[in-house]
């Protein structure tokens, strides 16, 4: 301890690169967004006017923004739930495989290495109303698939593409979690006469809860922020904004529409929302988590 107290500056020096990155790529832009959200500015920055909270009022009262909020909640909940439950199922199954386990695992982890935009294009091809294999198959079953007009189908498409992407990430964590559960616990339960279903829900699932909680937070953040590429390549936010999420709307207003004030206000609101959501998760969901 005494050694370190003489070197007050040294730890800070070691921390500096990380702090600099956070400051430059997070705090500075966040501060800029906060500042700009109180101004109306032309695209070229030739003039700006302080408008107080009117950007915020415009955003919060906009029907399109409210729709984007609803879309985001529906989309995020579906993606998190879908990606986690499928990954858990696959991990449980893969955990039992004795022969060729490595091969299965590699195949299941693979989708994570596919770039979101590429994954989006892939699903778009499968579901293309005139060329897609899946849409043709659905057509022969009497289901008319056209995500370019049907908002519900478009939402389903982006959910499927995002779930497929995120599933692999969850799979790795669930598999690692499963493998760290002591086999003796499950064996003694089996000797006591507990069936596989019961063993899973009373032993495995509670012991996995730290992993599940971690993944819940990560998946929510993924669905909120990292699905931009998938949405942009598959639906472009359409039809009629049915798949426009909050992040996608910020892009549309800020980059396409060059409305810096309005999109800054949206991103500040989004930051607050996600902060609140994470807080709620830590306060209420984490209580039920059993660390061991």
């Amino acid at each position: 301890m005494a050694t370190f107290q003489r070197h007050r500056a040294f730890p800070w020096l070691l921390l500096l690169p990380q702090l600099a990155i956070v400051a430059i790529f997070f705090f500075w832009p966040a501060f800029q967004a906060l500042r700009r959200s109180f101004y109306v500015q032309d695209a070229f920055g030739l003039g700006e006017r302080f408008v107080g909270l009117s950007n915020y009022v415009a955003v919060l009262t906009s029907a399109l923004w409210q729709q984007a909020l609803v879309n985001t909640l529906l989309f995020s909940a579906s993606v998190a739930l879908g990606a986690m439950s499928i990954a858990l199922l696959l991990a449980t199954l893969a955990d039992r495989v004795l022969r060729g386990a490595k091969g299965y695992r590699t195949l299941l982890i693979w989708p994570y290495a596919v770039a979101p935009a590429a994954a989006g294009v892939l699903w778009l091809f499968l579901f293309d109303p005139s060329l897609g294999i899946i849409s043709r198959a659905l057509g022969s079953l009497g289901i008319h698939w056209n995500q370019r007009l049907n908002g519900g189908q478009a939402m389903l498409l982006v959910i499927i593409a995002s779930v497929w992407q995120q599933m692999s990430y969850n799979f790795i964590f669930f598999l690692a979690g499963l493998q760290s559960i002591p086999a003796s616990l499950l064996e003694s339960a089996a000797i006591d006469g507990a069936g596989p279903w019961r063993r899973f829900w009373t032993i495995t699932f509670p012991l996995l809860s730290p992993t599940t909680f971690f993944l819940l937070v990560m998946n929510t953040i993924y669905a909120f922020f990292e699905t931009f590429g998938t949405i942009d390549t598959t639906t472009g936010g359409g039809p009629n904004n049915a798949t426009t999420t909050l992040v996608y709307k910020i892009y549309q207003d800020g980059i396409v529409g060059l409305d810096l004030g309005g999109s800054s206000a949206q991103s500040v609101i989004l930051m607050v929302l996600v902060g609140l959501l994470t807080l709620i998760q830590f306060r209420y969901v984490e209580r039920r988590v059993q660390y061991y």
Binding site: L149, N150, G237, G238, P239, N240, Q252, D253, V256, G257
Partner: peptide, 21 residues
């Protein structure tokens, strides 16, 4: 001004009409 987004609005609403919404 904002013509790219006006196009989006028009096309979005056109889609809604075509879908019978």
């Amino acid at each position: 001004g904002n013509m790219p987004q006006i196009r989006e609005a028009i096309e979005g609403e056109l889609e809604a009409a075509l879908n019978g919404d």
